[in-house]
C-alpha cells in the first residue's frame, strides 16, 4: 500500500540533495504529513520557494511548484495569490532568504495579511554557500564570514512577523516534529498571513564550527533549548536567556488581503454589498 504521504512527493526526484544529519528532510516530512491531515488538494495548491538548501524542498513535492530568486518567494507568491485567490499557497524559505535578502517582502506580506502559509527553515546559517552568518545566527557564533564570531544580534523572526501584522505565528523544531506538523496544519487552515518557523539542524555548516556535534546532538540541543510557549510566558527574560519558545505564539483575526480586494472590485464597479 502506498504510504499516504507519498502522494504529495515526487518520488522520482528523490533522494534529496541535503547532507547527512540535515534537518530539512524532517521539515519536509512535517509538511507532507500536514498535507495528509488537511487532505490537501494537489491540483489547487502551489508551493513557492526562494533560494538555499531549504528551498529545494519545493521540487520534491507534487504540486505546481515555483523555485524563485533569492529572497523573493513571498513576492512571487503574492502575485499568484492575488491573481488567483482560489489557490492555496505555501511558501518555503530559509533564514537568510526570509530574514535578510527577503526581509522587506516578509514584513510587507505580513502587513497585507495575504493568505499565504510561510514555512521558514531556520538552520541559523547560509548552508548552501558553506556557512556564512545569517540574521538568525545566534550572537557570538562562528561562521566562515565571522571567523572571530558574530557580533550582530539576531532577529526573533516570530516577533518580527507579529509586529509586522502576521495573524498566525508559530515555532517548532525538527525534534518536536509532531508539533511542527500540527502547527503547519493550523497555519494552513488559518485565513491570513501565517508564519511557522521550523528550527532545523545544519551539522555540516553550522554545528561543526560551533562544536554542537552531529545532527542527532543538535536535535538534543533543540529539545533542551525549546520551551513550550505556555511555560515560556511564565518565565522571566533572564530565565529564557538562550532559550526559545515553541508552539502557537500568536493568533489574531484580521481582514485578509485578497478578500478585501474582491470588495474593492465590487466597490469600483458600483455593486452594492450583500445583505
Amino acid at each position: 500500500m502506498q504510504n499516504s504521504v507519498e502522494k504529495y512527493l515526487r518520488m522520482d526526484k528523490l533522494p534529496h540533495i541535503w547532507c547527512p544529519g540535515c534537518g530539512n528532510g524532517i521539515v519536509l516530512g512535517a509538511m507532507v504529513r500536514a498535507f495528509t491531515k488537511i487532505n490537501c488538494n494537489q491540483n489547487n495548491t502551489v508551493i513557492v520557494s526562494g533560494i538555499g538548501c531549504s528551498s529545494r524542498a519545493a521540487g520534491y513535492m507534487d504540486f505546481d511548484t515555483l523555485h524563485t530568486t533569492h529572497g523573493r518567494a513571498l513576492a512571487f507568491a503574492t502575485g499568484i495569490k492575488l491573481a488567483k485567490p482560489e489557490l492555496k499557497v505555501f511558501v518555503i524559505m530559509g533564514d537568510g532568504d526570509a530574514a535578510s535578502i527577503g526581509g522587506n517582502h516578509l514584513i510587507h506580506a505580513a502587513r497585507r495579511n495575504i493568505d499565504l502559509t510561510a514555512i521558514i527553515f531556520n538552520n541559523h546559517i547560509y548552508g548552501m554557500t558553506g556557512g556564512q552568518y545569517s540574521p538568525l545566527t545566534p550572537l557570538d557564533s562562528m561562521a566562515t564570514t565571522a571567523p572571530y564570531n558574530t557580533i550582530e544580534r539576531n532577529f526573533d523572526l516570530a516577533e518580527l512577523a507579529k509586529a509586522a501584522g502576521a495573524t498566525y505565528v508559530a515555532r517548532s523544531t525538527t525534534y518536536h516534529a509532531t508539533m511542527l506538523t500540527n502547527l503547519i496544519v493550523a497555519g494552513a487552515t488559518h485565513k491570513g498571513f501565517s508564519l511557522i518557523e521550523a528550527v532545523t539542524a545544519c551539522p555540516v555548516s553550522y554545528g561543526r564550527r560551533n562544536k554542537m556535534g552531529s545532527g542527532y546532538d543538535m536535535m538534543i540541543w533543540q529539545k533542551e533549548h525549546a520551551v513550550p510557549v505556555q511555560k515560556a510566558r511564565n518565565l522571566t527574560p533572564k530565565e529564557m536567556q538562550g532559550k526559545f519558545a515553541v508552539g502557537e505564539l500568536y493568533k489574531a483575526e484580521a481582514p485578509e488581503y485578497t478578500e478585501v480586494y474582491d470588495l474593492l472590485i465590487k466597490k469600483a464597479q458600483g455593486i452594492p454589498k450583500e445583505g
Binding site: 513557492v48 515555483l66 513576492a75 503574492t78 502575485g79 499568484i80 491573481a83 517582502h105 510587507h108
Partner: peptide, 17 residues
C-alpha cells in the same frame, strides 16, 4: 508592491496563473 524587485516577481507569479 514594496519595491521594484517584488513588482517584477508578483507579475511573474500572476502570469503563471
Amino acid at each position: 508592491m514594496e519595491d521594484e524587485l517584488s513588482s517584477m516577481a508578483a507579475v511573474i507569479g500572476a502570469s503563471l496563473t
